[in-house]
Each structure stands twice: as C-alpha cells, then as structure tokens.
Design a protein around this nucleic acid. Structure first.
Lengths: 337, 337
DNA sequence: GTTAGCACTCGACACACCCAAGTGCCAAGT
DNA sequence: ACTTGGCACTTGGGTGTGTCGAGTGCTAAC
C-alpha cells in the first residue's frame, strides 16, 4: 500500500468532489482516473485515509468527501498552483491599466477578482504608512468647526471635522497651520505623532488648547489611514453555492459586512514563504465562517495590504490561488507607478 | 356583499400571510379575526377578490395569498402607517446624535435602518448641490501628476489625480491655483462649471493647456459629488428570507452590488404626497428584483437624496414604512445642523 | 500487497394511501 | 339581496413500503 498512491487517491477525491459536489466512491474513481489498480485496492487506501482523518463518509456506505484536514494536505503538499491562461493575463493587465486613480484601481481589482474566481472578493485599501505629509489644510466651516485635511505623497486624502470648545479665530487658525505645516511637511506618516508633539509644545500658550485638538485629529488621520477600509464584490456568488454551506449564508454575509471582522481575518492569516495563505473551513477563528475558506495574499510595498477571496470549502484551490496571486502581482505593479 | 368588508378581508389576508408565510383560508380567517360573518361568506368575498386579481391561490383548493396588486391596494388604501414606539424613537435619536462626522452619520443610519426593519438598507449619500466652494488645493505629486482637492462648505471633500501631458512647473501651478481660487471661491457648486469657464478664458495663454485639464477635473468633481455613492447594510437579512424569493437571492445581491442600478432604482421611484414610495414585486423595472419590494423616501434639503430598504414582497409594510420615514426625518434634522 | 467475490447498508426514488384544509356551489333562511 | 349551513370535490403533504443502485468492509485466494 504505497504512500504516493494514497496521496494520488486523495488528490483524485478532492478534484472529483470539487467539481461534482457529490461524494465519490471507489468505483467511480478508478473509472475516471487511470490509477492502474482495482477498486478494491482503492477501498483499502480510502480506509487508511479515513483513519487518518483526511476524508469522511457522510453516511455509512456512501462515497467519501474530503475533510478540512484533507483539503489542507491537498493544498500544502499535493496540488500545483495552476498558472493562468495567456488571455486571462492579458485581460487582467488591460483592465487594470485603464484605471484613472487609486480608488478606481481598487474598484476594478475587486470586481476582477470576483469574476475570475467566481467567489466573493475582498480587497483592503493600500497602506499609506510609508508615505509622508504633502500638505495640510484647515478650513473654518463654522465658528466652532474646523475641517482638517491631510494630504499624503501617495495621493491619499484624509479629512475630518473637529469641534473646538471656545470659538477659534481665523487668524489663530492660520498661525497654527503655519507652524504645524512647517514642522511636519515631508515627515513620514508613521513619524507624524512624534513631530506633532514637538510642534505642539512649541506653540504659544494661547494657541495650545486649540492646537491640541487639531493635533489629536491629525494623529488619528495619519494613524488609521484608509487601510482599514475594505472593498467587496461578488457576494452574489455565494447564492450559487447554497448547499455548500452547512447552515445558511446568513452568518457569512454578516461577517463580510463587518469590516472589522474581515480586517482582522485578513491580518491574522499566516503568510508562508509562497506568500499566499489559505484558511480552510474550521480553521477559521470566527464561527460563522466554518464551512468557508479564505485564500489571501499581500500586495503593495512590503505586502502590507491584503487581498483575497472567500468561498465554500469545496473550492478549486489551485486555480483560485493562481488568480489571487496573479491579481496581487499586477496590482502591486500598477500601484508602484 | 359589502365593499368595506371585502377590503377588511383583504387586509386580514395580507396581515396573516405576512406573519405566517402560509396561504390563508376562509376558516382560519374567521377564527383569528372577529369579522362577524361565517366562513362561507368570506369564501364569497374571496372569490370576488380573486376575480379582481387582488389575491390568488397557489393551487386549486388551497388558501389564498395576496398578489402584487393586492399588496398595492393594501398599501395605498387600507393600511395605516404604524407609528414607532417611544423607545425606538429614543434609540434612533441617541444613536444618530452620537455621530462624529457626515460619513459616520451615514454609516450609522444605514445600519440602524437595517436593524429596525430587518431588511437590506440602502442609503444614498447626501447631495451637495446647494453647497459652495470653500477651498481648492492643488498638489504636485510628480512632474506630470497633480492631485486636485475640492472642499465644499458642507464639509465634503473631493479629490482626484490628473495627468498633465507636458510637465507642469510648481510656479505655474501656483498661479493657476491663485487665479482659479479667486474666481470661484464661494461659488455654488452647481454654478461652478460656468465660472470655471470664465476663469479659464482669462488665463494667460501659456497656462491655458494645463488650466484646461485642471478645470475639467474640477467640473467633474463638482458634478458628481458623492451623491452617486450608496451605502448598504443588512444583506444578511436576505438569507433569512430565502423561500420568499421565487428564484434565488443571487440576482438581488447582484443588483445591490451595482451601485448604478440601485441609484437609478431609487431615483426613478415616484414619490407621492406622503413622500414615501413603495415598489412592489413586479412593479420593479429590473427583472432580477421581481419578488422584491422597495420602500424608499427622500431626505435632506429638498428631499433630494434617497434612502430606503429592500425586502421580500411579503413584508410588513406599515411598520417598515414607518421606520423608513422616521429614519429619514431624524437624518434630515441631524444633517441640518 | 493486490484482487475478486460477496453480504450488507443506506439513500434516493416511486408508488400507494390517507388526512386535513380548503374550495365551490346549491338550496334554504332572513 | 345577502348570508349561511351543508356537502362533494380537490390537492398538497406526510407516511409507509418496496425496489434499485452505489458503495462499503471483509475474507480468502492470488
């Protein structure tokens, strides 16, 4: 009972089940794949695989389906990442190159990924930590309302409205702007809080109060950036897969809608050497997502921002992984320019 | 066979069906509602209602369910908008008042609406047409890239990156900014294109080319605003209602994801005197949305921006309409400040 | 280590059957 | 002119039974 053949059997089971959605039996297996042995032998192999917890039978005397553990082994050791076809690559490239600005790129990316994989696509906005301050603008909207705008060198713009407790004068505001701007112009966003602290301490005492609230707002703007926002596409693909999800797709939709949940999910995945990470079914920490798999990877400088897809455990991992990886690469390249 | 009683029967059928999800028969009707007549009489009434196309029987000799036309009559002439409970009102108010800025308000609103109605909530961003130009900022990101920022008095910020064909000099850019800013400062966004045209024609010929591309970008920024963006929440509620939708929820998720579709849908609804508008099942123009109903209303100045919910035809219209209306009112009030 | 054979299990499907809920209609009552 | 009780009829749904096919596990032989 050779080890390599057992893995081959597992691969065959996974592949057949993924595209037939039905438990696969020993007979069907020898028919479809030329394994060179009889069904009885396969049955023996299957018994071992079941003992190892890699496959399971929904009911006595029915075909087998892969377990989460089985998929895991398949992904880690058996499957090859299937390269995309040339036309697909071409399509990705032309689509992404037609984008007008960063937001447009992200929008196109997420749709593309959803279409390519037939799953729900999730894309996190790129990190701006490496960027630095290009400009700061304060606008007095009302006597007690200031609009604060922070423009970074990577072209992202953050804004926020703050309230000041006593009124603030146009002149004071101008002076604060002047001082802060000269102190932090060109400073990296990550270093911004420190510099702002210094600038604040050097403000004339009369301006200290207002300066404080403004500085605090700026720190927040620099800190959270847009990288805590995600884009979704292809949720309709979930509807196609009803039945692949043990319960309903309700909890999954809920999770997708909670950006916080998705962000934590993306950031918590372990990215191995290949850079692409897969969470299979019950490996997912959040309960509502058991029965779902996530395939994700990083992109951009330092692979700091994430992107990926979410779908049923019963998924074509090789092609999906290839698509995710390819999209991430093209996206990184586009963003570099 | 009195007309008022027939309507009463229709109301009873709608109400029972909405909360039992099962076809309702004559016997059950007299049991639950004290109509003062026997089931045979009700049967006669039902026959008439069926002839008028207001109710239908899924199969011969089964209870009746309302047709789209029946719901329509119910909404238009029979039902009363059920006012919210005091705690609910209170909850709305405190939740919305805790918001920090416009984006936050919108986010809270859409979640609130989804939770209140148990349906999918859709909120369009407020129109900024009435606002005027507060400030304009150009940032030279690269020799051929300018970031254009348009800040309006209502606190919304629009930005966009444009490419210039030959390089543009820092000095030229400053001059263009100077001239354009003085020309359009304080101008209403709706009047911006005209003023920009004038300002452009008065630019020195050397700056005309770059000025043109910048002006075009500004016009677009002023024109599209954010009012063509929508926020969604509560898509998970669709999963609960599986079975209420004739086909799958796939097409509905698709439609929701296409902002363009939703925007057209919201804008095309006819808002009557009560200001609240209902589209029932097949009344929806887009095919994928038959089987779904939309309840929407306008909010903000001029009720120009829309907000509403989408759910199965089998919906508790009175409460839903009340919730939509209430949320729109509170939102309008908050935004006024 | 592999294979053929065999007994056994179980889900899926088809069929028959009955029951409850409901309808439509008629004739009688008010 | 409505309303009502009564009655025959329809039908979906639930239940029980039988059969069929795919599949398994095991054993004995190769």
């Amino acid at each position: 009972m050779s080890e390599p053949r057992r893995l081959e059997v597992l691969r065959a089971i996974v592949e057949d089940y993924v595209h037939s959605r039905e438990p696969v039996g020993s007979k069907a297996l020898v028919d479809r794949h030329h394994l060179g042995v009889s069904s009885a032998t396969i049955r023996n192999d299957m018994a071992v695989l079941e003992e190892e917890g890699l496959i399971a039978a929904p009911h006595t005397s029915s075909g087998r389906i892969p377990t989460d553990k089985g998929y895991r082994l398949f992904v880690d050791r058996i499957s090859e990442v299937k390269p995309l076809s040339a036309p697909e690559k071409k399509a990705i490239q032309t689509l992404l190159e037609g984008a007008e600005d960063v937001d447009d790129v992200m929008d196109r990316t997420v749709r593309l990924l959803a279409q390519l994989t037939n799953q729900v696509a999730v894309v996190q906005f790129p990190r701006s930590g490496g960027a630095s301050v290009r400009h700061i603008e304060f606008v007095l909207l009302a006597p007690q309302q200031i609009l604060i705008v922070l423009i970074a060198t990577n072209g992202t713009v953050q804004q926020r409205i703050v309230r000041t407790h006593p009124d603030i004068q146009e002149g004071d505001l101008a002076e604060i702007k002047q001082r802060i701007l000269s102190a932090v112009s060109g400073v990296k966003l990550s270093a911004l809080p420190g510099e702002l602290g210094v600038a604040l301490s050097q403000l004339p005492p009369a301006l200290r109060a207002h300066g404080g609230t403004i500085v605090k707002a700026l720190e927040q703007l620099a800190g959270l950036g847009r990288e805590d926002r995600i884009l979704l596409a292809g949720t309709a693909n979930l509807a196609r897969s009803t039945g692949d999800f043990p319960l309903s797709i309700g909890p999954i939709l809920e999770a997708l809608e909670e950006q916080v949940v998705m962000l934590r999910l993306l950031s918590e995945m372990e990215y191995d050497a290949r850079g692409i990470s897969v969470r299979i079914g019950s490996e997912n920490p959040y309960g509502g997502l058991s029965g779902a798999s996530v395939v994700a990877t990083g992109y951009g400088p330092d692979a700091g921002a994430k992107l990926g897809i979410l779908g049923p455990t019963r998924m074509d991992y090789p092609t999906t992984m290839a698509a995710v990886r390819a999209v991430a690469r093209y996206l990184s390249r586009i963003l570099e320019e």
